[in-house]
Write a protein that binds this DNA or RNA. Structure first.
Lengths: 307, 307
DNA sequence: TGAAGTCCATGACGATTACGCATACCAGAC
DNA sequence: GTCTGGTATGCGTAATCGTCATGGACTTCA
């Protein structure tokens, strides 16, 4: 079995695995069994005469050979899909751009930029999906996304160690904010001191295990009390409005705060800088993607100006 | 069955069929049965929801949809094969050029150009194969060749009706010549009159059926006597040397005439112009192919000068 | 320290697929 | 008619590929 005899479904499975980071997840996404995916990958590795995945506790990562195959597989599969569209008489998908975004960008920046783009370039179709930073980074590498809106915190590491490195452009850099109920004593002032945050009840992000505890003000010198955990921003903010606790929010989310919530800055501690960045593969960007990138940039700038 | 689910072997089979012009020939080349090829094509057409081949008495021709699929298939298969090479640690085949040639070019122009190129650009690898004009044209379209050296006779039609049209460059245009044994009465002069060709015995090219009878001087007002038929130039010329008959030769072959053969021009009839042309796909040429094209051009020019 | 959860690999089995063989069909040459 | 190109197709067999079920390695939690 030579590599020239690989099957397209094996390549498709491999791309999905590269994007999901897990055989099991890829199987779910494809409607296969984990077993089937495992076999497909095994057969692909046999054809390549080299391991393509490095098996780790929490899933898999691409090896060097894996990156080679992924890059090629993406162009092959894109070509096949383009053929299918061409045969079906559909216009080439030249006018669409695929954007991935981290949840914090979904409430304000994303709708504004997409609306602006629809006004200025009505012919461009934007399709987007939400995802975690690693998922979006993998999707960029797998060629499933053109652009990804990501959050980045100090020490502003590169998004992944792979090569070629992703191109990253900072759209906005502002300090982390605090969401408090308007009924809360702290809500009286425009800003609070970090010392006043001791003993508060917090609404955290994903349950636990995340490297840093999202939602709780970083660097507190106590073990925080987690009253609730929620991934969804709307839920989080309404929990805050209901007086269930405090939480941190990126400054860019401020315009979307519902009634009953005040967004404050926090003084007295180390500055907590947060970046909103736009990432993409280093290759030249297709035209519609470049236009969307422009729209995102100016939407981010507008966000900064009036503040 | 969607087109996105085609199998690579189906694409490979299809490319081979496009190149050979016949299911049976493709089957032979691939080591398959004609039956298997027929089924693969049928399955491909089912996936494409459109006939890709037009069945004719003497084989098949690509339909419009067939051309779409062929173009895509070529890039897909090339990508796959490049992946295989990359995985095997082989250098990308960037330094090689594939040339096809019509038999008349094989004795003089081809060896000279390849030798010159080896001197001037030793790092370029040239791989060549001989073939009939339609076979070479199909191979160009199937992406199996970068360049093709072809013979062309009035009325100098385009090589095929397909689009995009092939790029054709004339390397040399000279008149058809006549090969006679040195012992023949006609060999006394430098040229013969067309009237003297009546009643001669001829050595023709491929048996028959070819649109025009190769080897016999065109336009004779009699039914020529075919003494022998031979496709191979060495055989033909030695048959001439042995006094078995006369035959026509392209002027470019003159330097390769063996002892015992004289190459004469023919006066008194309509001028019989023959072109030696270099054909390729209209896309930009890879660097090594451009160098070989240069070498062929100058070899052809050198051939013309000293004449 | 044991139970439960994550992940991937693999043996057994069944359904589908894809091949080769033989044959049918069609059209042109003689 | 018969022969010689070509393609299509019924049939039997062998290989492929999915699912199911299980096992092994490891982490997390009580």
């Amino acid at each position: 079995m030579d590599f020239t005899d690989v099957s397209l479904v094996a390549l498709r499975v491999f791309r999905e695995v590269a994007e999901r980071g897990t055989l099991t997840a890829a199987a779910g996404a494809l409607g296969y069994t984990q077993s089937a995916v495992s076999r497909q990958i095994a057969s692909l590795e046999r054809a390549a005469r080299a391991p393509l995945l490095e098996r780790r506790r929490d899933g898999v990562r691409l090896t060097a050979a894996g990156h080679v195959v992924l890059r090629r597989a993406v162009t092959v599969l894109d070509e096949i899909d383009a053929t299918a569209r061409e045969l079906a008489g559909l216009p080439a998908e030249a006018g669409t751009v695929r954007l991935g975004w981290f949840a914090s960008a979904g409430a304000v920046l994303l709708p504004r930029a997409v609306a602006a783009l629809r006004r200025s370039h009505p012919s461009i179709t934007v399709s987007t999906r939400e995802g975690s930073t690693p998922a979006l980074v993998r999707a960029l590498r797998a060629g499933t996304l053109d652009l990804a809106l990501l959050a980045s915190a100090p020490p502003f590491r590169p998004l992944d160690g792979e090569s070629p490195p992703l191109t990253v452009r900072t759209l906005a850099e502002r300090s982390l904010r605090l969401a408090v109920p308007v009924t809360h004593p702290l809500a009286a002032a425009d800003s609070v001191d970090v010392a006043d945050l001791r003993g508060q009840r917090w609404i955290a992000g994903s349950s636990v295990g995340d490297e840093r505890l999202m939602g709780v003000w970083p660097g507190l010198d106590e073990r925080p009390v987690i009253a609730h955990t929620a991934r969804d921003w709307l839920a989080k903010l309404h929990l805050v409005a209901a007086g269930c606790g405090l939480t941190t929010v990126p400054a860019s989310l401020a315009p979307a705060a519902p009634a009953g919530v005040r967004i404050l800055s926090v003084k007295g501690g180390p500055e907590e800088r947060r970046r909103l960045v736009l990432a993409r593969l280093p290759h030249p960007l297709p035209e519609p993607a470049a236009r969307l990138a422009d729209a995102l940039r100016s939407a981010a700038a507008d966000l900064d100006e009036p503040a």
